[in-house]
Design a protein around this nucleic acid. Sequence first.
DNA 1: TAAAATTAAATTTTATACAATGTAATTATA
DNA 2: TATAATTACATTGTATAAAATTTAATTTTA
Lengths: 151, 151
Amino acid sequence: MEPNALLHLDNQLCFALYACAREVTKLYRPLLDELGLTYTQYVTMLVLWEKDDIAVKTLGERLHLDSGTLTPLLKKLEASDLIRRERDREDERSVIVRLTEQGQSLRERASGIPSQVFQQTKLSPEQIASLREQLHELTAVISLQEEQAKR
Amino acid sequence: MEPNALLHLDNQLCFALYACAREVTKLYRPLLDELGLTYTQYVTMLVLWEKDDIAVKTLGERLHLDSGTLTPLLKKLEASDLIRRERDREDERSVIVRLTEQGQSLRERASGIPSQVFQQTKLSPEQIASLREQLHELTAVISLQEEQAKR
DNA sequence: TAAAATTAAATTTTATACAATGTAATTATA
DNA sequence: TATAATTACATTGTATAAAATTTAATTTTA
């Protein structure tokens, strides 16, 4: 093997992931601009479109994001009238997020986005699904490691 | 098919990538802390360890990063005495980056990192290689799309 | 049940990302 | 060859990310 091949950029899975994730995000930008959303705001809305009336904590677990990222992001979505934030009366430590009418209806305008991006990837639905599952598994393994590392 | 299944978070390849990339980066953090590097600084050093004496432009193409990200990052690496930045005398528009002695020698301290991370992924070398190649291909396809979109 | 521990958000700090703009140097062209 | 176009980098502004700290609320426990 070549000397130090393990340190070569193109041999790093981490870099392949890092670069690919950013390129894919870039594909969304022009589409999301029309909705007035950033990519992170978009995935936040995806979660809420599936089920709103959830705590910031729950959102964070779903998105792998903590309050340092979510709090300002949610305030912006609230300023755009897409969501409302309200303290949970049962447990005042929690903040509950719910969609406004506008937030609900934005879903329709977003509904065409996945297929538009899909076309640009030039991958088959099977390739997409396979890649997605490999990544989900890897993410799950790593999340578990990090969970355990905390103890 | 379920209504709007295309908009479900777990069906998005983009989110699988986005979440996985961040989790993998988190795995590196404790290891890179010992070297005093952030993840982006680490991949920058990987490029330079392969070949230094290159322009910021070249670095950016290799890393898919622009000067808005690289300029401050390189200034920090210079402040840490790992690199030097110098105008190209042949073409004063370019800035050439080269490793210092310290930058060179940091390579040895970094050499064990890839295998340490590899172990934590619980993937076989073949699975890693396969996933990496799928991501490289997808990145290449998308980069090409974006290249063409500019015209 | 009062004190200690835990939890959920918010805040602060540091470091990316990237679009848009500015500037200086270089190259192309009328 | 003067000027227009291009190029490389730096700067500015906006939006993440994530660690660390703070605050307020809730739960556990001695």
